[in-house]
Deep mutational scan, measured.
Amino acid sequence: MQRVNMIMAESPGLITICLLGYLLSAECTVFLDHENANKILNRPKRYNSGKLEEFVQGNLERECMEEKCSFEEAREVFENTERTTEFWKQYVDGDQCESNPCLNGGSCKDDINSYECWCPFGFEGKNCELDVTCNIKNGRCEQFCKNSADNKVVCSCTEGYRLAENQKSCEPAVPFPCGRVSVSQTSKLTRAETVFPDVDYVNSTEAETILDNITQSTQSFNDFTRVVGGEDAKPGQFPWQVVLNGKVDAFCGGSIVNEKWIVTAAHCVETGVKITVVAGEHNIEETEHTEQKRNVIRIIPHHNYNAAINKYNHDIALLELDEPLVLNSYVTPICIADKEYTNIFLKFGSGYVSGWGRVFHKGRSALVLQYLRVPLVDRATCLRSTKFTIYNNMFCAGFHEGGRDSCQGDSGGPHVTEVEGTSFLTGIISWGEECAMKGKYGIYTKVSRYVNWIKEKTKLT
């Protein structure tokens, strides 16, 4: 034993070699072989497995989906700052455009905790909710729209109204504003409101030439003092309507412009014939205590009207009353817009006519005020429907199939267009061939041609 100890002390290297040989010859039971080890760690190889990531292109799944990435790591994937920024906006807080917040056709661009709407022409605001041009839906104005110097929408209202708090709607500024039905039992019968379409306001006024200088022999019209197929109006439903009495009662109609003036057809009036105007009328054979009678003290036909040349060209006249009318729910003026808007309103496509005229061709006159909704007829169809001249200051309205029309005794009465609950004068009943005849239409004086003249002559002093 002493000898062994001496050998170990003198030859430590020998001992180490012996131990190493023993270990190498022993069977290893701690580690699995290569094949079995792979069965336990069965993990798919990654895209760049075996390579240094710093030297390969980034992978979106590896960089940002398996674990949260930084902007720089995302930049490695896209290799483009702009594309990385677009991805980053949604990656950080989701897609803010998912709810489609942009209105009126706006395009949404996502941002971090926010979004941006790219608005089409005519709109602005956070969600493109603000109209900035009158060309689109009248700028959301209830009545009139004008573009300011910086191309912003400025709404306005006709006389007797003021802008509401929203700067879009119009509200009454006087007790009985024009064009409004205020009798409670008839307010439910107000005709369907007309909503502004998209309009090209630059070209809204037709490029028409008034044929002022045409000389033409007097034409022989049949029954051209021209509501057939209409309905009984309720008291106060058309408070701007008046009836004219002269040699015979209810020979023509008219509309209240203001307390002192009536507008009617020029062919209705004769110099030297006494005319009485009755406002607030409903049943011409009954006294309903809503009527107001006034005498006409002055007749002003349009300066281009000449019955000797043509009885229905420039067929418009103004009547001055001896005493002002007292405005109330049964006696209310009709609204008159400017030339541009009167023309736009007419193009809405349908209007209402009213009167006490004959209820059928050569038949009896109506006792109760009649009204009828009539569609506008395109000019080409209008011209083809008659052998008589249709001037540019006239328009056609009615039904091709016949059966409904204005008729004798309705002449001078109103053709009105309702705009968001307020009625505007767009025409004056003038003439036609018979009444409600198939293929024939009622012919009306186009008020847009005469609004400046009306307003100039009827100013209240």
Rank of each mutant, 00 (worst) to 15 (best):
N5V: 15
A9L: 13
S11A: 13
L23I: 13
S25V: 13
A26H: 04
E27G: 10
C28G: 14
T29L: 14
V30R: 11
F31A: 06
H34F: 12
E35S: 13
K45C: 00
N48W: 02
N48H: 01
V56L: 06
E61H: 04
E67W: 00
K68M: 06
E73Q: 01
T81A: 10
Q90R: 08
D95L: 09
Q96P: 07
E98W: 10
C102K: 02
G105N: 08
K109L: 07
D111M: 12
Y115I: 04
P120L: 12
F123D: 03
G125N: 03
E129F: 03
N135V: 12
R140K: 13
E142Y: 05
Q143P: 00
K152N: 13
V153M: 10
T158M: 13
Y161A: 02
R162L: 11
Q167L: 14
P175C: 04
G179N: 01
S187K: 09
T190M: 05
A192Q: 09
V195T: 07
Y201W: 10
D212G: 11
Q216F: 08
Q216W: 10
T218I: 08
D223S: 12
V227R: 10
V228T: 13
V228S: 12
G230T: 14
Q241I: 14
Q241S: 06
L244P: 00
A250E: 08
F251A: 09
N258D: 04
E259P: 08
W261E: 00
W261T: 01
I262M: 02
G272H: 11
I275F: 11
V277G: 01
G280D: 00
E281T: 15
H282T: 12
E288T: 07
H289D: 09
N295E: 13
V296L: 03
I300R: 03
A307H: 08
A307N: 08
A307C: 05
K311C: 04
K311G: 05
I316M: 04
V326Y: 10
I336T: 03
Y341A: 07
N343C: 03
I344K: 13
K347A: 11
F348D: 08
G349I: 02
G349S: 07
W356V: 07
G357N: 08
F360E: 15
G363Y: 07
V368W: 04
Y371L: 10
V374W: 04
R379T: 15
C382R: 03
R384W: 04
R384F: 05
R384C: 04
T386H: 10
T389R: 10
N393W: 05
F395K: 01
E401Q: 12
S406Y: 12
H415T: 00
V416A: 09
T422D: 01
S423V: 08
I429S: 15
G432L: 04
E434I: 08
C435N: 04
A436C: 06
T445H: 05
V447F: 01
W453A: 00
